[in-house]
């Protein structure tokens, strides 16, 4: 590799948190920045699409894309970036799994437009502008990056934590890169990193985080909080459970867990206990599980577009 590695960072349908997350590297960020040449990063440097188009193919060492794919313009841009890059990295939960904006897939494109713009409202070009300046068309559904372009690596998380970003840059800058497809997180669930104690494994009630102040030592799941820890990759250091908040699964499911909702339903169905043994208990256990508010949003908070494909016609 001649000269400094060339780096691009781009955002599609995201919140901007991923761009900020680099700052969390702290002083280490200065080391990283001194070792790379930033060729394209709209949030940081003044570069335009035209600058990108002028670059020769595969001239960018690595492009980090954050955000979900939501508009036709998103798709055009990531295709362009793919063409200009040797490596494309899905950075953050949106690019990885669709992310929180992916929950919009529970509604159709038309329903979303109606809700946002009101009935009868047409998206028009800005005053005095051309038709070309009108906002890009919304895709039928939010999609993860890998739906559109080949993704070499993933740095997961919402946003990615320094403990996951750091190893990625180490690998990139040392040239000692893992096999393609690698996700920069643990293969084991984050319970491995969680200091909470697991004494009496059972779920007797379902609590939302605002409904109780959890015991500081005991497993949150055993206290009734739906912690996605058991199905979610470690690597974050169990940051949320340590702070008394249940894991919401932003790093994504472990490789063998598969669909996080199915894995979690199997686990909750196993853990739930109510009433005495026997058929009467089943009904009581159902009632406990029925109190779970927003199961889809709980289990697929970051991953709906990957695991639930659109079935509705319009």
């Amino acid at each position: 590799m001649r000269g400094k590695p060339k780096l691009a960072v781009y955002w599609t349908g995201g919140c901007g948190g991923c761009d900020v997350s680099f700052l969390e590297l702290g002083p280490a960020l200065l080391d990283v920045l001194s070792q790379v040449e930033i060729v394209f990063w709209p949030a940081l440097v003044d570069t335009k699409r035209a600058d990108l188009e002028e670059l020769p193919p595969r001239s960018i060492t690595a492009t980090l894309v954050n955000g979900t794919l939501r508009t036709e313009e998103n798709v055009e841009m990531v295709r362009l970036l793919r063409e200009k890059s040797q490596l494309v990295v899905a950075f953050g939960a949106c690019a990885h799994l669709g992310g929180v904006p992916g929950l919009a897939n529970l509604a159709s494109r038309e329903e979303i437009l109606r809700t946002v713009t009101g009935n009868g409202f047409r998206l028009a070009p800005p005053p005095g502008g051309d038709a070309e300046d009108s906002p890009p068309e919304l895709l039928g559904a939010a999609r993860p990056l890998a739906d559109e372009v080949a993704v070499d690596y993933t740095v997961p998380g919402c946003p990615p934590m320094p403990s996951l970003i750091g190893p990625f840059f180490e690998a990139l800058l040392s040239g000692d890169l893992p096999d393609p497809g690698h996700v920069f997180a643990q293969e084991q669930a984050l319970c491995k990193e969680c200091p909470r104690t697991r004494e009496d494994r059972k779920l007797t009630k379902v609590l939302r985080p605002h409904e109780a102040l959890p015991d500081p030592q005991e497993c949150l799941l055993d206290q009734g909080m739906i912690c996605m820890g058991p199905v979610t990759r470690g690597g974050c250091g169990a940051a949320c459970p340590k702070a008394g908040m249940p894991c919401t699964g932003c790093v994504g499911p472990t490789p063998e867990a598969g669909d996080p909702a199915l894995a979690m339903i199997a686990a909750l169905g196993s853990l739930v206990r109510a009433g005495d043994e026997g058929p009467a208990a089943f009904a009581a256990e159902d009632r406990v599980l029925d109190t779970l508010v927003d199961p889809l949003g709980t289990f697929y908070k970051y991953s709906l577009p990957v695991y639930v494909r659109a079935r509705r016609a319009a």
Binding site: E187, C191, K192, R198, R201, G234, P255, E256, S270, L271
Partner: peptide
């Protein structure tokens, strides 16, 4: 599979034979 197990112990109370230790 010890490379995948996180020690979450969800399995432990499920075993009707008490065969799993956390």
């Amino acid at each position: 599979d010890e490379d995948l197990c996180s020690g979450c112990a969800v399995c432990v109370p499920q075993c009707p034979y008490g065969a799993i230790s956390p």
